[in-house]
């Protein structure tokens, strides 16, 4: 399943890609962004940083049994500092369709085009 974030900045595109990641699992409107968590990662290039960011979220979703619906990303070169807000998964309310195994490097791209940043990849479900 492909996920793509588009934004005015690289950080915004990363935030939007994270929203798309959650939407693969559940309807964003059903997830209350009440509890924050911190995420940090770094990678040798923008593309691997995007994959790392999404994979960090997949790890947090899996181990904390949480879903996230709000993201704030700050990029410092190839370092990412982020906060994600969400809540514990409730199957009766969130009706989660699938769990995500990992973000792949298929169709992985981070680029500025026509004045907008695009951050995309395919996730394995």
């Amino acid at each position: 399943m492909g996920v793509r974030g588009v934004g005015a900045t690289r950080a915004q595109a990363f935030e939007q890609a994270a929203l798309a990641l959650t939407a693969v699992v559940a309807d964003l409107q059903t997830i209350d962004p009440r509890q924050p968590i911190e995420v940090e990662c770094q990678a040798p290039d923008d593309e691997l940083l995007l994959a790392d960011w999404l994979n960090s979220l997949i790890f947090e979703m899996s181990t904390r049994k949480m879903l996230f619906s709000r993201f704030s990303v700050r990029l410092d070169g190839r370092r990412l500092h982020a906060r994600a807000w969400g809540e514990r998964v409730d199957p009766a309310r969130h009706h989660p369709a699938v769990e995500i195994k990992g973000a792949t490097y298929t169709a992985l791209r981070v680029a500025e085009e026509n004045g907008e940043w695009v951050a995309q990849t395919v996730v394995d479900v």
Partner: peptide, 17 residues
């Protein structure tokens, strides 16, 4: 389950780099 998924994720990066 999650164990295999995480091994795949981590080694994909290690091998790519």
């Amino acid at each position: 389950r999650g164990l295999g998924h995480q091994i795949g994720t981590d080694f994909l990066k290690r091998m790519a780099t």
